[in-house]
Design a protein around this nucleic acid. Structure first.
Length: 434
RNA sequence: GGAGGGGUUCCCGAGUGGCCAAAGGGAUCAGACUGUAAAUCUGACGCGCGAGCUUCGGUGGUUCGAAUCCACCUCCCUCCA
């Protein structure tokens, strides 16, 4: 166990998962000293986490695998305030009821990534509302606020642009966010002997604030470690696609879509992402890269990445469903699918809808836009003009736009009831007659 | 409370009476090339198949005509009190 621990930091560095470390000279020794408790916070800003939280979640697990105890903190209190770190604008407050319901959702999500049955290293999930709910203002100001220097706080990079930049601003509420998060660290130190906080690189200011507060309130030496911002080689933002954010909740982003997201990662990002998002050995990833480079044609990296991450987030069943759809649609002729195959695709989460017998829209542009294949009829129109709309194997053109009932005639349906519509190369939608 | 500056289509950002559905860039979508990749090239990019309809913080005016002018309201920023 001791050896595993010293190996851990080295491995994280190999994976490029460490960005900044507070107390770097003493952290290895501390980790080597036995099983330690560490935490990472997740604020409820929606009813699901998205893949931006995946790296920290997996980090908790990496530490647990190395013999430490992970504490996942769900920010029932901080979520009520809003973290201003590197945010361009003041955020809208959510109601306590909403935040509370989100907290419960996140609690369940977070729990899937760590082990609660690991003896002394069993994971813990806490809510910082536990120790802030009954904190009264005067106590807060006298016992906690007194330890913070405004001079230091306004120097923090994370709020600097909000303070200096014209056209924005920061409320007192958001400004005090750092104090609340700092207090979390001090409190976890007291309650769980928690000595390390993990977070994204944007959390550096909040983490060091917590380290200072823990020292001042309890005289304790604690540490901080941040992970780099995940970037894409083309400079666009990681984790967003045409259809929006990639969520961890299967109801928001289906395992199929999730799998597809990772499958379409650029070559230049794939090996780095394998190191960030999987538990594959660094050496094995290097071997995959070498093999891909020697072979011509399509690399294996994306497939492995998609499989590993989908399994981590959606389990074996989710991965199986995702692969089933992918293989059906992208290998060979999708129109050659059997009737049970098509039924299975609907169950597996391929976007699908029922086609009413009567009352169909007059144009394909409207019907397909309503089905969610594109954001507007304009985009369908563009696709129609380029022969990019394919229904049951035949391409349609603008001439078909007004002929909805002919296109969806009963005798054109697969097995008398299915229409598989493809828009462009990757977007599919299955219509079934009711 | 006072003075000044600002709020433009997803984002940044031009536009100061008609030539404006609104420059340019980014993002995004589609096509070609490919490997469901990148880069590159092409087209689209408020909504509508179309005629046309609805936009430039909000409301109401002036005008043949307003994102552009006027009044009031609202939100943000800076300085002063």
């Amino acid at each position: 166990m001791i050896n595993m621990t010293s190996a851990l930091l080295a491995e994280l560095q190999q994976r490029e998962l460490t960005f900044q470390i507070a107390g770097e000279d003493k952290l290895p020794e501390w980790l080597n000293g036995g099983s330690r408790s560490l935490y990472c916070g997740f604020d409820p800003t929606a009813d699901s986490l998205h893949i931006g939280s995946l790296v920290p979640l997996l980090m908790l697990r990496r530490f647990q695998l190395a013999g430490h105890r992970p504490i996942a903190l769900v920010g029932g209190a901080t979520g009520l305030i809003g973290d201003p770190s590197f945010k361009a604008q003041e955020r809208q407050l959510n109601t306590p009821e909403v935040v509370e319901s989100w907290v419960e959702k996140l609690r369940g999500q977070v729990s899937r990534f760590v082990d609660f049955d690991a003896g002394a290293q069993s994971a813990v999930v806490v809510n910082n509302l536990e120790w802030t709910r009954d904190l009264d203002v005067l106590t807060f100001l006298r016992d906690i606020g007194k330890h913070f220097s405004i001079n230091t706080m306004i120097q923090k990079e994370s709020v600097k642009q909000r303070i200096e930049r014209e056209g924005s601003g920061i409320s007192f509420t958001e400004f005090t966010y750092m104090i609340l998060q700092s207090y979390d660290f001090a409190e976890l130190y007291k309650r769980y002997d928690c000595g390390l906080q993990l977070g994204g690189s944007d959390q550096w200011g909040n983490i060091t604030g917590g380290i200072d507060l823990t020292r001042r309130m309890h005289g304790g030496q604690v540490y901080g470690l941040t992970m780099p911002l995940i970037t894409k080689s083309d400079g666009s933002k990681f984790g967003k696609t045409e259809s929006g954010t990639i969520w961890l909740d299967a109801a928001r982003t289906s395992p199929y879509s999730f799998y597809q997201f990772w499958l379409s990662v650029a070559d230049s990002d794939a090996y780095r992402f394998l190191r960030y998002f999987t538990f594959l050995e660094v050496a094995d990833i290097a071997e995959i890269e070498r093999a891909d480079a020697e072979r011509s044609g399509r690399p294996e990296a994306q497939r492995i990445l998609a499989e590993e991450v989908t399994r981590l987030v959606h389990g074996d069943a989710g991965l199986a469903a995702a692969k089933r759809i992918t293989e059906s649609l992208f290998s060979g002729e999708p129109e050659g699918l059997s009737e049970p195959d098509l039924e299975q695709l609907m169950l597996d989460g391929l976007p699908s809808s029922l086609l009413p017998d009567r009352g169909l829209p007059e144009t394909l542009t409207q019907l397909l836009a309503d089905a969610g294949l594109a954001a507007s009829g304009k985009q369908i129109k563009d696709a129609l003009q380029r022969d990019a709309v394919i229904i049951n194997g035949s391409a349609l053109g603008m001439a078909d736009n007004g002929a909805v009932s002919a296109v969806f005639a009963a005798d054109k349906a697969l097995y008398g009831r299915f229409y598989l519509v493809r828009l462009g190369k990757k977007k599919y939608h299955l219509f079934a007659r009711s």
